[in-house]
C-alpha cells in the first residue's frame, strides 16, 4: 500500500515534468526533419524475413542480440523477438505444449525426453511486418505505420500510449516500454537495413535460420527460398499480409 502511494506521487510528479517536456518535444516534432537516410532509396525496397524452422537450434542469440542492438529492456515481458519451444504429440496437434522461458534469452534447458514419440522444434517469433497491419489500422493518430519500404514502425515521439495496437496485433509482438510509456516493437533494425546491414538477429543467427530479404531486389536469394520451400505464415486466417515467411512451419503453431 505504501509503495502504491509512493508510486502515485512519483507519477503525479512525473506528470508535472512531462507537461513541460512535452512542449519542448512538440517543437522538435513540428520542426520536422529530412526523412531520407543518405544513399537509401525509400521506394526501392520491400523488406521481408524468412525463418527456417529446420535450422533453428534455440540458442537464443537472436533474442540477446535484439535486446542489445535495440536497447530493449531485459524484463521478462519486453521482447521484440523471442523463441518458442514446441512439444507436440503428432496425434494431437491442437494441444501443443509450448514454452518460452524468458523469451529464450537464456537458451533452453532440456525439458523433454528423447524417444517419447513427440515432435519437437523451436519457433522464432517477431513482428511479421504485415502489409495490411491490424495494428496500423487501429492506431488513432498515425504513430505506427507501414513505411514505404514495407516495415511497420513506431513514431515514439507521437505515440499516445493508448495500447490499441497491442490489442490488435494477433501475434503478441507489441509491448509498452515503461521508460517511454509508448509502444515498442521490432523495427526490423531499420537503422541497420537502411545502411546496407542485415538485422541484429540475422547477423548473429549461427545457422542462418533467419534471413532478411528484399522482395523488390530481383537478385535477392529470398525469391529462390520462397520458391523452393513449403512456406507458411503465422495465422493466415487473419489475412494480415504477414511478411515473416516460415519454412516447414507445423500446423500446431499459433
Amino acid at each position: 500500500m505504501d509503495s502504491d502511494r509512493r508510486e502515485f506521487m512519483k507519477i503525479a510528479g512525473a506528470y508535472v515534468v512531462l507537461t513541460g517536456a512535452a512542449s519542448l518535444a512538440w517543437n522538435h516534432i513540428v520542426a520536422g526533419e529530412p526523412e531520407k537516410a543518405p544513399g537509401y532509396d525509400l521506394s526501392g525496397h520491400w523488406w521481408a524475413m524468412t525463418i527456417d524452422i529446420d535450422k533453428c537450434i534455440g540458442c537464443g542469440n537472436c533474442v540477446r542480440a535484439c535486446k542489445a542492438e535495440n536497447g530493449v529492456l531485459l524484463e521478462p515481458d519486453c521482447f521484440r523477438t523471442w523463441v518458442e519451444r514446441y512439444h507436440v504429440h503428432p496425434e494431437d496437434p491442437e494441444h501443443p505444449q509450448v514454452d518460452s522461458p524468458n523469451g529464450g534469452y537464456d537458451g533452453f534447458k532440456e525439458k523433454y525426453k528423447p524417444g517419447d514419440g513427440s515432435k519437437n522444434f523451436f519457433v522464432p517469433k517477431m513482428c511479421n511486418h504485415c502489409a495490411h497491419s491490424p495494428c496500423v489500422q487501429v492506431c488513432p493518430v498515425g504513430a505506427t505505420f507501414e513505411s514505404p519500404d514495407g516495415v511497420v514502425l513506431v513514431d515514439k515521439t507521437y505515440c499516445l500510449g493508448c495500447r490499441y495496437c497491442v490489442q490488435a496485433c494477433p501475434y503478441g509482438c507489441r509491448y509498452i516500454d515503461p521508460r517511454t510509456e509508448t509502444v515498442d516493437k521490432c523495427s526490423l533494425c531499420y537503422h541497420r537495413i537502411t545502411k546496407g546491414l542485415t538485422t541484429a538477429c540475422c547477423e548473429t543467427c549461427p545457422t542462418g535460420a533467419r534471413k532478411l530479404g528484399d522482395l523488390k531486389d530481383p537478385k535477392d536469394p529470398i525469391h529462390d527460398f520462397l520458391k523452393e520451400h513449403m512456406i507458411h505464415v503465422l495465422k493466415p486466417e487473419m489475412a494480415t499480409g504477414a511478411k515473416a515467411y516460415y519454412n516447414d512451419l507445423d500446423g500446431s503453431v499459433r
Binding site: 516534432i29 520536422g32 526533419e33 529530412p34 526523412e35 531520407k36 537516410a37 537509401y40 525509400l42 498515425g142 504513430a143 505506427t144 505505420f145 513505411s147 514502425l153 513506431v154 513514431d155 515514439k156 515521439t157 507521437y158 523495427s187 531499420y190 537503422h191 537502411t194 545502411k195
Partner: peptide, 10 residues
C-alpha cells in the same frame, strides 16, 4: 504518419 519518424528510426 510523420515522415520524420523514418529518420528517427533510421
Amino acid at each position: 504518419f510523420r515522415s520524420g519518424a523514418l529518420k528517427d528510426n533510421a
